[in-house]
């Protein structure tokens, strides 16, 4: 007696195709597109989904989670300063107190919990997909993103002349990390500019990142490390509290922008 039930190769192919096509069809036009599946992008995705906002995370890598898998110097303990540990409580991730106001958690545990929490809430994730450009509408408002398969970018243009596709949305969240790719795309058109990251010099850098999270351009919210390079804020080192809280703030700003009332605290 075999362990698994029968399914033909063709049926497996059709199942993959059907699932993927259904998802892509749904988020070809969605409310929010989050570019970048690191901690801030995933937190924003979860918060939006919990508030009933349709959203999709575009991630260029196969793996989701960005730098959240590891802490500093390739060591996989990640650190968070209070009150960010409260978010770990929300997603059911264990952690330990290291010192007053500083908490540690294993990166793989925290990262996988965050991915699961975002998807459990209803966020969609499109990985191996690179952001190529923005879609502009009246008054140059950003109204979507242009995407392509990540492997296409890695091959010579002569071999892979693959046109990208576009997804429409009401709001884009740039959670692409230090590169701030969405803002860069606006910058190339002379519509926005990045200040670039400042030096790592004071204790309160994380506060500054959270407080600067918000609309950076009509139709674009910046979150996470994109905030640093957009506004020239001091880098903060590999501590992730600001990433989670910035993602949360980005979702709050997006809800306001979409004219939605946040649901009561769960």
């Amino acid at each position: 007696m075999p362990i698994f039930g029968e399914a033909s190769e063709a049926e497996v192919t059709r199942a993959i195709l059907a699932g993927f096509t259904k998802d892509l069809g749904e988020y070809a036009s969605t409310e929010v597109i989050i570019v970048g599946g690191g901690p801030s992008g995933l937190t924003a995705a979860r918060e939006l989904a919990l508030n009933g906002v349709r959203n999709v995370v575009i991630e260029r890598n196969n793996y989701i989670g960005g730098g959240f898998w590891i802490g500093g110097y390739l060591m996989n303990t990640v650190t968070l300063r209070s009150p960010a540990q409260k978010y770990l409580d929300e997603i059911g991730c264990p952690y330990k107190k290291y010192s007053e106001n500083l908490y540690v958690t294993p990166g793989p545990h925290a990262c996988s919990k965050l991915i699961a929490a975002a998807m459990d809430a209803g966020a969609k994730i499109q990985n191996m997909t690179s952001f190529e450009d923005i879609v502009l509408r009246e008054k140059n408002r950003v109204a979507g993103v242009v995407i392509n398969w990540t492997p296409v970018q890695a091959l010579p243009h002569e071999i892979t002349c693959v046109d990208p596709i576009a997804l429409e949305c009401e709001l884009v969240i740039d959670a692409t990390g230090h590169d701030a790719y969405v803002i860069q795309a606006l910058e190339k058109r002379g519509l926005a500019k990045r200040i670039g990251e400042g030096g790592m010099w004071i204790e309160k850098s994380e506060d500054a990142v959270v407080e600067h999270t918000g609309i950076a351009y009509p139709g674009v919210v910046v979150a996470g490390m994109s905030v640093c390079s957009t506004y020239g804020l001091p880098r903060m080192g590999p501590t992730f509290g600001a990433m989670l809280l910035s993602g949360k703030r980005a979702a709050e700003v997006a809800l306001k922008e979409l004219g939605r009332t946040p649901k009561k605290k769960r």
Partner: peptide
């Protein structure tokens, strides 16, 4: 340099909430 949109919004938020303290700038 002409400030960017988000920087102005940030300062607006600080003006609206004077009890907030945000070093880093």
């Amino acid at each position: 340099i002409e400030p960017i949109y988000g920087e102005v919004q940030f300062e607006l938020r600080l003006l609206e909430e004077p009890t907030k303290r945000v070093p880093g700038v």
